[in-house]
């Protein structure tokens, strides 16, 4: 089996991740347009492969088509990893992604067949984020810089920056679950607001720690800046989405401002997750898991620059 980084596989993984991001947009459009049950049957649509494309059917059908495309891409990704990847754990991660996309399809069908029970709809939305994270991680793991021989840096933070980043990643993921539950009428807004406060604090702590301890590292400074920008934008979008939901309640149908703000808020949440996940993975890669060779700050800068390329 080839041991050199497979650039084609990496590009394919990135393409799968981008397609998954579009799938998240398509799914969010279904929810915001209240179109989840516009096609009562599944896997067919009005008994055929292509239903009449009117009203809410357009959103639901496009979501199903993009989901099928992502499913096929994931089959390809898992197969490619299984056949070409030397790291056994990564081959299994590819299979996990495949299991995720299959489960996601089943959950999607369940939401239709069971008339969108909040638990199933929220699980569908949550698994979407988990699947997106898995594909992002695969894209990171298949990159050339991940597979390069690197000299480990030292985590001098207290608490350790790695731990902070992991906990922030977990908090963001939990927050996305709370958001999904709110969006699908499982919970009220309060848990999601509390989650927002916690996530904001953790992200600012992580970004601050990155800046303090790795100021010499341009990639990690960029990660810190990106996290701050994303969480700021996401907070504004969250406020906007909430206002738009309240405002649109007096309208007989979903209105454009509500659909736009809620969809952008939902997918920006996915971007926040992707950003903190990549940050965490980068930290793990350059800081190492165990005791490794420590290098001077001046050298580490050059190393991390190389990693990011």
């Amino acid at each position: 089996m080839d041991t050199t980084p497979n650039r084609s596989l990496h590009k394919y993984a990135i393409f799968t991740a981008l397609s998954t991001f579009f799938l998240l947009i398509a799914g969010a459009l279904v929810t915001s347009n209240d179109a989840g049950l516009s096609i009562p049957d599944w896997p067919l649509a009005y008994g055929s492969l292509v239903p009449p494309m009117v009203g809410g059917i357009r959103y639901e059908y496009i979501h199903r088509v993009v989901a099928t495309f992502v499913g096929l891409l994931t089959i390809g990704l898992a197969t490619w990893l299984w056949r070409a990847e030397k790291r056994v754990w990564l081959r299994w991660l590819g299979l996990a992604a495949l299991g995720g996309v299959v489960a996601q399809g089943i959950l999607g069908g369940m939401t239709v067949r069971m008339y969108q029970p909040p638990a199933v709809s929220a699980a569908h939305a949550t698994l979407a984020q988990l699947f997106f994270s898995t594909v992002i991680a695969i894209a990171v793991f298949t990159s050339a810089w991940w597979q390069n021989e690197l000299v480990e840096m030292e985590d001098r933070g207290a608490p350790r920056v790695r731990c902070l980043a992991i906990w922030t990643t977990v908090a963001v993921f939990l927050q996305l679950i709370l958001g999904a539950a709110f969006r699908h009428n499982g919970f009220g807004i309060i848990p999601h607001l509390i989650g927002a406060a916690i996530v904001t604090i953790l992200i600012f702590l992580t970004a601050g720690a990155l800046k303090r301890h790795f100021s010499h590292s341009r990639p990690l400074r960029k990660c810190a800046r990106l996290l701050r920008i994303l969480i700021g934008v996401q907070l504004l979008l969250g406020a906007g989405a909430w206002w738009s939901r309240v405002y649109s309640a007096q309208f007989p149908q979903p209105i454009a401002v509500m659909v736009t703000l809620t969809v952008v808020h939902t997918v920006t949440g996915a971007l926040v997750l992707a950003a903190i996940l990549v940050t965490t993975l980068v930290l793990y890669r350059i800081l190492g898991v165990g005791v490794g060779t420590t290098m001077a700050d001046s050298d580490s800068s050059a190393t991390t620059e190389r990693i990011a390329q």
Partner: peptide, 16 residues
Amino acid sequence: YSLALGAFALAMAGCG
């Protein structure tokens, strides 16, 4: 995780 989520969803859906 897929199995766990599916089982969770099925269990919760049974309460509907």
